[in-house]
Design a protein around this nucleic acid. Structure first.
Lengths: 181, 181
DNA sequence: AGAAAATGTCAACACTTGTTGACTTAACGG
DNA sequence: CCGTTAAGTCAACAAGTGTTGACATTTTCT
């Protein structure tokens, strides 16, 4: 028994779906409002414009669950969160996909970079601990995002049909050796 | 004593610089012709339009030099080619940057994915050899692009000030363990 | 020199973009 | 019931997009 979405919520949800998969500047206000079945003027009215709408989608980014885990389980949780299959060539709107989709955006690139630094790299480093925690965090993220990039964006044939367990095993193998550096 | 560039060459060179760093749909025809100091109409005249101009820039992609090396040196050459420093926050137009800048482009994404598969993954797999050559190629590319992504696009602080040798050492460490899988 | 072809210029087109203001309609409170 | 506020619709704007055709200029060839 879900309460039906308000118009404002419909816009925000559709915007999240489109912005996070196609990237900020590849999505027009009319793309969003068209898909949501509402008037285009409401974006400026409710969110102060396209830019405000995008930032509103960022505000509801769930915390990376891996960062909530006990320090000794952070790695396995992080690996797990990058190991589920991507919907078969269809678009899935998760925070990591969003980061990959907006890295070079001319208007939002800086905001995205800041988000990676403050919401992923720094908390992960503190969880990992140790003298080289910042280096380790960077290399763990590098490993996980590298595999995500190959699977989701470049869609390499060799990685296409691997199931969750196989991906998790490979991610774990790579991450463990990154931590041994 | 360089022969001065023809107008057509000026357009192509400027287009390569801009397309490869900002991505196809983040660059307008007038951006290019403005920077090149020529008339905007010449793009359609010489290259058949914006799309044709972009594809012309892809045609001059140099072969990945690592793929020309002897099989026993392929890995070290590949690692080396991903280890030089990125120009300090200024845009460098190399083929790998281009691939990262265009992965989610709504018009060119398919072409980029195809390029990665046929120009990088498959030749690399053949050079590596062995039963798991396709898996190994995918994981090597994953490792190298992962680090490139963290350095060039996300600009993680922890990786910012590392010199070529340090990056090469880390890339090599990760790639070697990827091959041990 | 004169014809022909290449080269470059200019203005305009049809279209999409984000945003705004005026308008109509619905909901709520007294 | 009426007045006020919220919610949503509509048409239009100014700016930017890729592309085109007509024109002017220069170069090339005979």
């Amino acid at each position: 028994m879900m309460k039906p979405l308000t118009t404002k919520e419909k816009i925000l949800e559709t915007a999240r779906q489109l912005f996070w998969t196609r990237g900020y500047s590849n999505v027009s206000v009319r793309d969003i409002t068209g898909a949501a079945g509402v008037d285009a003027a409401l974006v400026s009215r409710y969110f102060g414009g396209k830019q405000g709408l995008f930032e509103a989608t960022l505000a509801v980014i769930p915390q990376w669950p891996a960062l909530q885990a006990e320090p000794e389980h952070v790695i396995e949780e992080a690996v797990a969160s990058f190991s589920h299959p991507f919907d078969r060539d269809c678009e899935e709107a998760n925070p990591f996909t969003m980061l990959l989709a907006n890295i070079i955006d001319p208007e939002m690139g800086d905001k995205i970079r800041d988000l990676v630094q403050t919401a992923l790299a720094e908390p992960l480093a503190e969880k990992l601990g140790g003298d080289k925690r910042h280096d380790h965090a960077a290399m763990v993220l590098s490993t996980l995002f590298g595999m995500a990039l190959m699977r989701k964006n470049f869609r390499l044939h060799a990685l296409k049909d691997l199931d969750t367990e196989e991906i998790r095993a490979r991610n774990n193998h790579l991450v463990q050796s990154a931590l041994k550096f």
